[in-house]
Design a protein around this nucleic acid. Sequence first.
DNA 1: GGGTTAAACAAAGC
DNA 2: TTGTTTAACCC
Length: 266
Amino acid sequence: MPELPDVEYYRIYLTATALHKTIARVEVRAPRILEGVTERRLRSVLAGRAFQSARRHGKYVFAAIEGGEGGWLVMHFGMTGRLSYFKDIGDDPKHDRFLIGFENGYFLAFVNQRKFGHVALAMSPEAFAEAKGLGPDALSIGREEFAVRLGERRGGAKATLMNQKVLAGIGNIYADEILFRAGVHPKTPVNTLDEETLGTLHAVMGDVLHTAIAAKRRCEDFPGSYLLPHRHEGGVCPLDGTPLETITISGRRTYFCPTHQSDERE
DNA sequence: GGGTTAAACAAAGC
DNA sequence: TTGTTTAACCC
């Protein structure tokens, strides 16, 4: 579930709550989520330091560690996850897998019910993205580069949008939303899209992501014309009431409107 | 061989 | 329920 807009919200949340506060303790409650780092190492890197700033690339949040050797804490939320800043350790959220305690007595928890998330360390967001082979962030990529990167692919539109190596940040939900608003069938091979459609797709992607980030901060308040609120069993197209169709793409449930997203392969 | 896709996997709640 | 990894597939 946490795709770019959700993760951007976590970045903002971390920035608002956890910067410039000296870290007093670190506790890993589910070692499984650690990726290439031990609890002992995390402690030695974080204890006595503070986070300086936070960034995001795709579905990853990075928190800069000031002082010491520097470096960045990296978090990925998997299917289910969020951050929670709270005061009383007795009020710790369910499924908190990684806890950072500050000297002011507050805690920042990495909440991850299904433990599909990851916590890691990196030299920089750039180095991490490079090592992972991530494409440019979906919110920063320009129209030109977007068109070039998609143009050289031959996969379906949805699969390509979700491919983190092509561009980073789009998942199942927002891929459906973007294609719906752009009127593109999810299986359309991207290398058959003309320049104009690619431009539309890029513009729509930016609109959808910005709208979603704003909606996250206003408690799931999405425009009625969006596919998202109708993306369920028996849902209908918000534009004309056509029953939405569902297909499976790469094992993912895909919702689309058969009248507004024509199949260009035919 | 490289790009693409389907299948397998991770964990927990219902 | 979904993102990532792995295996199998296709020019």
